[in-house]
Design a binder for these strands. Structure first.
Length: 425
RNA sequence: GUGGGUGUAGCUCAGUUGGUUAGAGCACCAGAUUGUGGCUCUGGGGGUCGUGGGUUCAAAUCCCAUCACUCACCCCA
């Protein structure tokens, strides 16, 4: 029979790896709490509309890159490819705006996109992120950026770089688009069909092209920053001033854009040189137009999403580990039938006392049991043979110092708990 | 959707111009030490050489096809 395999673009997290995941998640939760963000969880799937409306029907994303399927009642459902739209949907559906004018929400979630895998890009991947809903103020943008950076700093990731830009408001952007289109049409003589289509439909997106020749043209293109109306200009100025006074170093990148038109004002990205071509650890921005696009009232909001696989990759390439392997406090070694018969009850007693305990489940030789104890990384082996059983004591072996001590049955757990405490101090 | 790279033991990889029963290190198991792990030594198990076809007296090696993985482009919410 053929070996079953996981599906393309998915990963099994083995115990070595899940330790890192757990540590990362713990780290995220701790720092989110530090900024007073609270967790929200949404279903792994949604009505396709949630994403189709959020993202816009015209893009390839909706038609090609989402896991969309019909359930038995012929409803079109989609595995969530991102979290911003579901969070906004949940925010409106549960009337969170009625509880308080501001909501600081965060999430940690698996997401699904049917793209071709490459370094740092999977079909099931995980993001954490924050959505700060309710405030149009630049202070909220700064709070969000500072939070994103804080988490990276605390992780000990080095060589992370913050780039920022503004995509303005519709009053600034619409006239600018025409200006840009005009420039691109005149300066790209024979555009590839894809590029021509871009210029026509989503000219901003041309700005972040990787094509060398295009980049030369783009370098001379008019910049949105230079064509902002006063309100948008003021917002951007304020964000920059506050970042500076908060001591945040950033660089401005006029080619940093977002593909979707619900974004407004601030956009930002945090990249790492420890990654491959997909070098963004985190991306975010203000999206004041999303709520309306989803069919609700206007709710100003700003947020970010960060790729957890990429963070773990970057940490690994910098030789950093977030977690130490867990080892049992004790390993029980029995010799002979009589001793072995008491194994289960001793394990239960140890565990009730709060000691993590393991033993041999193969009936192996003493030597093999010690080898197993050694492999487990435990500090203490508890040896129970005929002599010990008859005289009611354990031979407790310190695996590190290779010393051994006889401990009566009735003082065993206290003895071990004391040892454990003295080691952790 | 497009292009490059790679598929040999659980893992990392050797394998000469095609030539006998396909190797190493690590890991695993056992013995040396029948009540004591790590270090050392000795031994052992484990492979339809990704899959299918072709050429040949003979294929891991050459040819064709195919699949998988991987990196990059496209795209990137």
């Amino acid at each position: 029979m053929k070996q079953l395999k996981r599906i393309k673009g998915t990963q099994d997290a083995l115990p070595e790896k899940t330790m890192q995941w757990q540590a990362l998640e713990k780290h995220i939760r701790r720092n989110m709490a530090l900024f007073n963000f609270r967790e929200i969880r949404t279903p792994v799937f949604e009505m396709t509309e949630v994403f189709a409306r959020g993202i816009g029907q015209f893009t390839d994303i909706v038609s090609k890159e989402m896991y969309t399927f019909q359930d038995r009642s012929k409803k079109s459902l989609t595995l969530k490819p991102e979290m911003t739209a579901p969070v906004m949907r949940a925010y409106m559906e549960n009337s969170l705006y009625a509880q308080a004018p501001l909501q600081k929400l965060y999430y940690i979630a698996p997401l699904f996109r049917q793209e071709n895998p490459q370094a740092g890009r999977l079909r099931q991947f995980h993001q954490y992120g924050a959505e700060f809903i309710g405030s149009p103020a630049p202070e909220a943008d700064v709070e969000t950026i500072v939070l994103a950076l804080h988490i990276f700093e605390e992780l000990g990731l080095t060589n992370v770089r913050l780039r920022i830009n503004t995509v303005g408001d519709p009053e600034s952007r619409e006239p600018y688009k025409l200006l840009l289109q005009d420039y691109l049409k005149h300066n790209i003589p024979n555009p590839e069909p894809q590029v021509a289509e871009r210029i026509a439909n989503n000219p901003l997106r041309v700005l972040d092209s990787k094509d060398e020749k295009l980049r030369e043209v783009i370098a001379g293109a008019p910049k949105l920053v230079d064509h902002l109306k006063e309100k948008a200009a003021e917002h951007y100025r304020s964000v920059k001033t506050q970042l500076e006074s908060a001591g945040v170093s950033y660089s401005e990148d006029p080619t940093l854009v977002r593909g979707l038109d619900y974004y407004t004002h601030t956009v930002f990205e945090i990249t790492s040189d420890a990654l491959g071509a997909q070098n963004a650890l985190c991306g975010g921005g203000r999206y004041d137009l999303l709520a309306r696009q989803l069919g609700g009232r206007d709710f100003p909001a700003v947020g970010f999403a960060a790729g957890m696989e990429r963070i773990l990759m970057a940490l690994e390439s910098q030789g950093k580990s977030l977690a130490r392997p867990a080892v049992p406090d004790v390993f029980l070694i029995t010799m002979g039938e009589a001793a072995r018969a008491t194994m289960t009850s001793w394990l239960a007693k140890l565990r009730r006392a709060g000691l993590s305990a393991d033993a041999d489940f193969l009936g192996r030789s003493v030597k093999a049991q010690f080898r197993e104890a050694n492999r487990s990384g435990t500090r203490f082996s508890l040896i129970l043979g005929e002599d010990e059983l008859n005289q009611k004591f354990f031979a407790v072996k310190d695996m590190k110092n290779s010393t051994q001590e006889n401990v009566p049955f009735d003082s065993l757990t206290n003895y071990l708990l004391q040892k454990k405490e003295s080691l952790t101090v």
